[in-house]
């Protein structure tokens, strides 16, 4: 593993993670560091363990052994409440699809994390509208996700992930369900916005053109990680 520029400290560190599902060993000694503000692409063949690694980093899955630290804190030693708070406020998530609440409007979807964190309705909606604007989907604010196109829906999901201004955003195949033109637009706006807020992005993708939006890549193979140095 090569440390990036001197003085940069990792925000998230995974060390020697092991995790299996039945007979399958998904992670077999995976170690990885995520640095503040970087866009890191997790690549590797399907079944290599990259999504499992992402879920461990995000505190969604707990490894059988090894540790994931956010700053100085071990995720496994946090209470469920602390971990949930971390996932709600400090981490942001973008998945391939099915992440927006279909009964809410797009604006309400983006405002939801703020409302859950206790923000007043008006303030939450104002900030949500601002994020929709930045992702160039202000016009679908009043629509339900089902009435927006796939590309628009995904940009709404990105706005929702960014609205709390998280430290780390986890994105699992964020363009997987989109055509190349819409995928490019999502990536361009997503990465620009993340860079603007200073959020680190952990991006799982099997698409090289999507990975090209990253600062560096880590290749997951057989449950282990091979990191590449940070290129800026």
């Amino acid at each position: 593993m090569t440390a990036p520029s001197s003085g940069t400290r990792p925000v998230l560190t995974a060390e020697d993670l092991h995790l299996g599902f039945g007979e399958t060993r998904a992670l077999q000694g995976a170690s990885l560091s995520v640095y503040a503000g970087e866009v890191l692409a997790l690549m590797g063949p399907s079944g290599s363990g990259k999504s499992t690694l992402l879920h461990c980093l995000a505190g969604i899955l707990t490894p059988e052994s090894g540790s994931v630290r956010y700053g100085d804190r071990d995720l496994a030693r946090m209470s469920d409440t602390e971990r949930s708070a971390l996932r709600r406020g400090t981490f942001g998530f973008v998945f391939q699809f099915g992440q927006l609440v279909p009964e809410l409007t797009c604006l309400e979807n983006v405002a939801l994390p703020l409302r859950l964190a206790g923000a007043a309705r008006r303030d939450a909606h104002r900030r949500a509208a601002d994020w929709l604007e930045r992702l160039e989907v202000a016009d679908v604010g009043g629509k339900r996700p089902g009435q927006a196109s796939g590309g628009q829906g995904q940009r709404v999901a990105v706005a929702r992930a960014l609205v709390t201004e998280p430290t780390v955003i986890f994105a699992d195949e964020p363009t997987g369900a989109l055509d190349s033109l819409n995928g490019e637009l999502v990536m361009k706006l997503f990465i620009a916005a993340a860079k603007e807020t200073g959020a680190a992005v952990v991006l799982v993708t099997h698409e090289p053109r999507v990975a090209a939006y990253s600062d560096r890549e880590a290749v997951v193979r057989d449950g282990r990680v091979r990191e590449r140095e940070l290129i800026r």
Partner: peptide, 8 residues
């Protein structure tokens, strides 16, 4: 990927 980043 290095070249692809540059082009991107």
């Amino acid at each position: 990927l290095r070249l692809m980043r540059e082009l991107t």
